[in-house]
């Protein structure tokens, strides 16, 4: 019973997260300017992190936690670098 609840809810949640990533991909492809693309890339990193986290709940292993933390860190650093690039035209001055 509880397994069915968990499996169904996590499947629906993962579908929602994938649809959210599809929305961001659409905006990433269409977005009128570079800043929209940077914003969508940052949001897609968060979505991927949440997807890995739900995968961890589904399998019951805490290995996924470290992967999620690594994805969050890389997303932060890359978004900062891209925003800096938009501002200055170069990342490291």
């Amino acid at each position: 019973m509880s397994a069915a609840i968990l499996v169904w809810s996590i499947t629906i949640a993962q579908a929602m997260l994938v649809i959210a990533m599809a929305c961001y991909t659409y905006r990433l492809a269409r977005g009128p300017r570079a800043q929209d693309r940077v914003l969508c890339l940052d949001a897609m990193y968060v979505c991927a992190m949440l997807l890995v986290l739900t995968m961890g709940i589904r399998t019951g292993s805490s290995l996924y936690f470290e992967a999620a933390l690594a994805i969050a860190t890389i997303g932060f650093v890359s978004s900062i670098a891209l925003a800096k690039f938009l501002m200055r035209g170069e990342v490291i001055e």
């Binding site: 019973m1 509880s2 397994a3 609840i5 968990l6 499996v7 169904w8 809810s9 996590i10 629906i12 949640a13 993962q14 929602m16 997260l17 649809i19 959210a20 990533m21 929305c23 961001y24 949001a43 968060v46 979505c47 949440l50 739900t54 709940i57 399998t59 019951g60």
Partner: peptide, 29 residues
């Protein structure tokens, strides 16, 4: 592992995960 989870915990986890994914979807829309 899910079979060992009591029903209340499974329901609470399901609710929280669905709320989180739904809010993320609203943000994307």
């Amino acid at each position: 592992h899910a079979e060992m989870l009591p029903a209340w915990a499974a329901l609470l986890t399901a609710l929280l995960v669905l709320i989180g994914a739904g809010l993320t979807l609203f943000g994307a829309i």
